[in-house]
Design a protein around this nucleic acid. Structure first.
Lengths: 332, 332
DNA sequence: AGGAATAATACAAACGTTTGTACAAAGTTC
DNA sequence: GAACTTTGTACAAACGTTTGTATTATTCCT
């Protein structure tokens, strides 16, 4: 491996001059800089990033911690973040938590020990506060949270307008003429789900419906729990559900069908996340779309700019067959 | 930050002893090791990985280069690899190429400059040979290729049994009574697609059909190109297609429907990759399933073991509605 | 031209770890 | 008990870069 010392020796200057020349310091003469650059190219020099990082105390790596990389939402966030960070000269280190608190702690430690320049994080369901995050990162490593955020942590946050989105989805179900609308609410230690639940409640109130907590089903996130909760909802007289996730909605649809109900005539549902299968299944599933790619981009930009605010990325209600009782044709 | 020197000072030993104690060298007394470990814990010491990497000349980072992280196949490979590597104490640096040669070169350089311990790679469509890979990695950084491999490069390779899989898929279409079976063959600079095409051809021959190259459509990989190619295939009298990708198959189904054909009665299709939407759409799409998670695991294991062979991960034909003309009920 | 101000470079110390070699103390052998 | 091995530590250099300070060369002014 050729080092700056090799270049320095070849040119009869010192390594420090070479270093400054290569990093464009104004303290080296234009002429010298050109000579250094030419020699570097000739010798095939490439900066040893590890040594550079050691000296500078930080790296050009940005860590991203997500529950599961193969979830469509998260892989798109990562894709969006990467597109910005890569252009800014950073690279991306991915860690998965599999929704487990311990894995999140370990990932944070790994990133800190690698002296990452920053961390983009969507916390595990298993974490119910951000103390471990604050402790692991200290105040030297900037943090940007996205989607699932702890609002008491410092740093930028990128979220969807969950309240407004769930509000719109619920109102849509009301407008479609469904009588009794329950919700599959997800995990209550995530503020995103809490906000969606609030949006659901507010929409019902604003439409003159009463909010019946007996048809609010929490901890529903996978098809199995969605299925189970839907059966209870049907028993409680529901003819529609707003689901805070698409996978639980999938389970709910199965459940409704197992009772012989027609969708959307007898039973309506709107999911959340706009997973790609929602548009392709039959009946196609209405879903409250997140914008993961844009969230990733915003998170990366927030890291780069160092600004601390909360960025809201709007959601969009995709009305499809599963909730279109009134022959609306605004299918997406 | 507390360093080994701090520990050494606190204990009245030297940093070298602390270093050896912490890495479990037999050259330090059990007693000393315990004292060091206790003091390290007390002071909250954590090894500076960057410094360690610099000294050792390599890091505990494994780079993974994929065309697109948000493609289900690749994100699952990454998930599989990560599950093995994480347990072995490595972490994972992800780079995307977006199918572009230049981006692949840049990613390789980034990884090399970060002194990664190894690289797992599925090359971009835009790369038609592996010279840049060999050059970038030299013989110091081990390479494991998966899915899309250049067979002339050294190092382990993890592939699907593309030939046998495509053979089975094509034979299945024959057995379902389709008369004229074309193929959407994908990109011919990827050996995986070449092998699938060969499997398709061999199956037809073995079934006593003649291979008609005019219904072999290459460079079909997205819905749009699949759609277009399918129209041509229909014009050429095809009543079935084996598609080397699911997305092109999706476009093909649209195309067949646009001609008023019923699926699978008038037109049959089998895709490849078993993307999650294939099972959920209507009619559900038969697909030749890859096993990306397992491929990722195998690639990671190959890196860890350092063995050089080719590992074949079997594909599985998922027969669903889009090719089930004969009332077979082996739906998955 | 002599001195001050400025520009360009050299020097040297870090960053925190690992590891080859040297060294001292303890244990073994005859 | 002297010579020799074994065991445990200390010493010091190295990994390649960055950066504060010192030094030399150049320019500018009166």
């Amino acid at each position: 491996m050729v080092t700056i010392s090799d270049i320095a020796a070849a040119l009869g200057v010192t390594p420090s001059t070479v270093s400054r020349a290569l990093s464009g310091s104004p303290r080296v003469k234009e002429e010298t800089r050109i000579a250094v650059e030419r020699m570097a190219a000739e010798l095939g020099y490439e900066r040893n990033i590890v040594a550079s990082n050691l000296r500078k105390g930080r790296s050009d790596i940005v860590g991203i911690i997500v529950p599961r990389i193969h979830r469509e939402f998260f892989s798109n966030v990562i894709g969006g973040a990467e597109s910005i960070l890569e252009a800014a000269g950073y690279c991306v280190l991915i860690c998965q938590t599999h929704e487990r608190f311990e894995a999140e702690v370990k990932a944070l430690r790994t990133l800190r020990n690698n002296q990452v320049a920053g961390v983009l994080l969507s916390h595990a369901i298993g974490s119910d506060n951000g103390d471990h995050i604050r402790e692991a990162l200290g105040d030297r490593i900037p943090l940007v949270q996205f989607d699932r955020v702890f609002s008491d942590l410092p740093g930028a946050k990128v979220v969807s307008n969950n309240f407004e989105g769930a509000y719109a989805a619920t109102k849509h179900l009301v407008e479609q003429g469904y009588r009794r609308i329950g919700t599959l609410a997800g995990y209550m230690n995530s503020e995103a789900y809490v906000a969606r639940l609030e949006g659901y409640r507010q929409a019902l109130r604003d439409c003159g419906r009463e909010v019946d907590e007996s048809v609010v089903f929490i901890d529903t996130i996978v098809p199995e729990t969605g299925h189970e909760a839907c059966l209870k909802a049907l028993d409680a007289g529901c003819d529609a559900l707003y689901s805070a996730g698409d996978f639980s909605a999938l389970g709910a649809i199965e459940a409704a069908r197992s009772r012989g109900l027609r969708i959307p005539a007898d039973f309506g549902i709107v999911g959340t996340a706009n997973e790609s299968f929602t548009a392709l299944m039959t009946p196609s599933m209405s879903s409250l779309a997140l914008n993961p790619f844009e969230m990733g981009r915003q998170a990366a930009r927030a890291f780069l700019s160092g600004e601390e605010g909360t960025i809201v990325v709007p959601m969009e209600l995709k009305v499809r067959e599963s909730s279109s009782r009134m022959h609306q044709q605004n299918q997406t």
